[in-house]
Write a protein that binds this DNA or RNA. Structure first.
Lengths: 344, 344
DNA sequence: ATGAAAGCGCTAACAT
DNA sequence: ATGTTAGCGCTTTCAT
């Protein structure tokens, strides 16, 4: 139940009503509208006394310029959008996007796509209707040709984390194949021969890429692919079953590579105490990885660079819409903590 | 490669640059501007043939209405702001805010205050200049009187998680004192007598409230407060020292209450293997709490309700600016997982 | 049922 | 150095 306490006076007891506009400020200061605009925009060609009068009027009326009108008139918003899977979930890439954007004097408008294609489209189109200066998208679906008119209209768009099909846009992604290779070799070097992979569904781009890279590792290592590669939905039952098959078959796996953060946590939940005996290298770092027992060895994405580059690519395209499309691959790195070093 | 038709249209086939406006659509459809506006806004009083012609023109030109101009003219934006400590960090309250806002047909503009008073002010004022329909704030500083002019101008503002001093605004908070009480009693019932508290600095509102509540518990239980309550910065060294003092004094604590998520993770890092022998109840749930060994017993905030109520309070005030200010307290609940059930 | 014209609050040419 | 006058792209009286 909730406790509620009410009070009767209005929110803060001051005078309510319509906001002052520049016209009001101009009248109050006894100057022309244009002069107020000049002061607000720090135009140096305003006489000191006029400027002072205007500033006094602004303070007296508590005037705050209407950003909507400004942006409408100037044509630019100083705002970029980020359409990511989920804001409000640990998202270091988004954190980097925000930091970099702010450093560049840009406001960030972030929205969640919830991993839903339709929702992504709504979110991105809404950003376009707001005439943001550009949009960073963590793309969901297989075709993004719905963006063609927007790109033609000149809206700069950058893909982060995954590529966009159907349109030519700048993009930044991690080197997924290299990451899987690092994880695999790490376990091989620790003496493992039977190494299994559990990861995201191959309908998802990263799931597809990482599973493919893992298969390539097995083949290159002369190991049969059979019974070792389990892409699929991130679903407790599906993962539990994959684990059983991988660990209790005729030639059971002694080590495991997990394909992304969500898969990793579900795998750990399924393993329970068995996690202390199975070598694991996880793709994607997870919060508190160092507090697990054993602590989790991971292949970490360079999230700061991913997000930072996304913003820089966007800024570059805003500055020069005709520059050649650029696709950046960011290296990943291994963080050794214990789980990947368990013996076979 | 696709063959190009007559005009040189650039890589994706459309004409670059100028976006069509309603005037263009009107000309293309051979109707008045007003009619286009009617169609865009689903006005039912448009003849079927006219409507069809307009829709065809909209599709032909890839017209997307300019949201800035719309909002400027209509006065409302259909957008609310959320100024929280950090977007892009696990924040279930923000998640609930987003979900509830979307369900109400509101767009959410979230920004990080980075726990910085100045930054909060910038962020919130920027939202006001954008004339958002309302703003939800996770407040930082001690005085928020800078918001008075905005409240007077009619901007609805709601505080979430912590109260705002200096202004009267609607607010939602967790029942901190009750949560600390639950944690304390839980440990007492498990036979603990010496229970210590480590939490956030008392400069922070929640840190202050929780430390005070814990002291009250000790007193009510007839235990000396001395050497058991350690509020302070969330800093590795500070926390390590507090732990040493609490656990290795003349009458060492056998159980621990941690005051928030960040404190909890630092405490666990400091404890290392000793965490398996010390009873701990943490305020705030943390991701992967169930994967720790022992799994972490927590007092969890009802984040869904916190965020949902914040949006509802905001909507209520938008609907009726003169309604009485309302302060809501949301109950917390205990999640038993193991760490809090270790014996003395 | 449709259209002409007047703004929303601001910035930007163009005077003065 | 300051003021006048157009718009930005849309919604909205108010006619027709």
């Amino acid at each position: 139940m909730m406790a509620r306490t009410g009070q009767d006076n209005g929110p803060s007891g001051g005078k309510r009503g319509k906001r002052p506009t520049m016209v009001d400020v101009a009248r109050e200061a006894g100057v022309a509208l244009r002069t107020v605009s000049r002061v607000v925009n720090q135009d140096p060609t305003v006489g000191a006394d006029y400027a002072a009068r205007v500033r006094a009027a602004i303070a007296a009326l508590d005037f705050q310029p209407d950003e909507r009108a400004r942006q409408l008139r100037r044509g630019v918003s100083g705002t970029i959008g980020a359409a990511v899977r989920r804001i409000a979930e640990a998202n270091p890439v988004l954190a980097a996007i925000e930091t970099t954007a702010r450093a560049a004097g840009l406001t960030l408008l972030a929205s969640s796509t919830d991993d839903d294609e339709t929702r992504e489209r709504e979110v991105v189109m809404s950003m376009c209707r707001r005439r943001l200066d550009g949009v960073i998208v963590d793309p969901i679906g297989d075709s993004h040709s719905y963006l063609k008119p927007e790109l033609d209209a000149g809206t700069p768009i950058v893909a982060v984390d995954r590529p966009m099909a159907g349109v030519m846009v700048d993009s930044v992604m991690s080197d997924n194949a290299a990451g899987i290779g690092m994880a695999f070799r790490h376990l091989v070097q620790r003496g493992h021969r039977r190494i299994a992979y559990i990861g995201d569904h191959e309908r998802v781009f990263t799931g597809r890429e990482r599973a493919a890279a893992f298969r390539a590792c097995l083949v290159a290592h002369g190991e049969p692919v059979e019974g070792l590669v389990y892409p699929g939905n991130i679903d407790r039952a599906r993962i539990a079953k994959a684990l059983e098959t991988a660990l209790h078959g005729p030639s059971p796996a002694t080590a495991l590579v997990t394909g992304n953060a969500d898969t990793t946590t579900e795998v750990l939940r399924c393993l329970g105490e068995r996690a202390t005996r199975l070598a694991i290298v996880a793709f994607d770092d997870v919060p508190l990885a160092d507090l697990l027992r054993p602590a989790l060895t991971v292949v970490a994405q360079n999230t700061a660079e991913l997000g930072g580059t996304a913003v820089e690519l966007l800024r570059a395209r805003i500055a020069d819409p005709s520059r050649p499309v650029q696709n950046v691959t960011v290296p990943v790195s291994m963080i050794v903590r214990g789980s990947g070093e368990l013996p076979a």
